[in-house]
Design a protein around this nucleic acid. Structure first.
Lengths: 214, 214
DNA sequence: ATTTATTATGAGTAAATGCTCGCTTTATGT
DNA sequence: ACATAAAGCGAGCATTTACTCATAATAAAT
């Protein structure tokens, strides 16, 4: 309840292999506890207990509860970035068509966010993050938009007056929709595969049909 | 911190005009306090104090903190529903074109969510809502999808293999993107009007270009 | 073998927060 | 004027929670 430390960096670097393992165990436990209880009810004591270490040990490596959440989020950011670059590389090598490429993109993001659906949501929305982290998120999204733009430039059928803006909207759309669907799967109303297909259709239409500026 | 009551209904109906005013004041204060502090830090004592009533009075009309959040959310749901119907009525009367109609829709939702940007976000994402409320949200979204479908059926240029699914995706897209933009206005990277225009372009393309099923 | 650095422990603290309950004040009806 | 119902009050309880610190155990270095 009380946030006494504002620093997010670890107060002590794990040096021996023993302590490195401890840090990993704590982070793993944190994902599980946050998934199960949410951010507010995911108490540090619970995390420590789940990790099988004492609460004191936890605070030796993380100066605050917030720092744990931020560490997890950073991990996820890196993972998503990797995934995106893998995707681009794959597409370039395999010479897939635009449709295939977008299908892969949407499917990848959907899977990415379905893997630990609650965790993403909790870290991004429930957790009160410092401004610094929000900035980092924004930058990551803009970087993603540029990566996507780099790939889409290779497809001649893509017509856009400003590919930067277009790709920004695309990234935002895919992020939003996949998060949303992963968080509240409306399977009863519209099954996952159809949903993904519809999103892809929308993206293709947006990219290839030349809608005049309004 | 402790959630002792699970019931969400007011424990006492306001009868006199005095008490009705009190309830209103409490709800107003709640919006302000939640906006300023978020859900977790928006304490009931703070809400009562801001409303200028005692904490005991607050608990006479709301059995729990959660009940306050739910009441606010229900209000917002009703407002958005009204707005949507107004929009449909307006479009039918004025006989606007598809492009105009979508512009209005997106602009309306963007304004709706920009009005109290933090509040929406807090109620929908930060607050741990009971399942019942999530169900209600889903139903509201499906209802919105049907309303939108009803309007779009009037436009011959709209081609869709399944207007229900298409409109569901559209509603989700607009909701997601406007929420997102309202929450973190990326004005620096892409200005609001351009963002709105791009979204509209995407929707028109999706609705009018006949992308073959994949 | 001994010193020193690193890692682990967990009972305890201080602060915060949701909510109760006994009591007082105000309005309504007769 | 009086009785009754409705509305309002707020000190304080019970609980939770993030976090500290003095101490102990373990590994590394000499």
């Amino acid at each position: 309840m009380t946030a006494r430390k504002q620093c997010l960096d670890p107060r002590k670097q794990p040096i021996q292999t023993r302590s490195k393992a401890t840090v990993d165990v704590i982070l793993l436990a944190a994902t599980q506890v946050f998934e199960a209880h949410g951010y507010a009810a995911g108490t540090t004591n619970r995390i420590a207990s789940r990790a099988g270490v004492s609460i004191g040990t936890l605070y030796q490596y993380f100066p605050s509860k917030e720092a744990i959440a931020v560490a997890l989020l950073e991990r996820h950011l890196v993972d998503t970035g990797h995934r995106l670059h893998e995707w681009v590389g794959h597409m370039v090598v395999e010479q897939h068509g635009l449709c295939e490429a977008l299908r892969d993109y949407v499917a990848g993001m959907l899977e990415m966010h379905t893997r630990q659906p609650r965790l993403q949501h909790i870290l991004l929305e429930e957790t009160p993050l410092p401004e610094r982290v929000h900035q980092a998120l924004l930058e990551a999204e803009q970087h993603a938009a540029q990566t996507v733009a780099g790939l889409l430039r290779l497809y001649p059928e893509v017509r856009s007056s400003c590919l930067e803006h277009t790709c920004f909207v695309i990234v935002q759309t895919v992020e939003s929709l996949t998060h949303r669907y992963a968080a509240h799967p409306d399977d009863q109303f519209i099954p996952r595969t159809i949903f993904a297909d519809e999103v892809v259709k929308m993206l293709i239409a947006y990219l290839t049909c030349n809608i005049p500026s309004i």
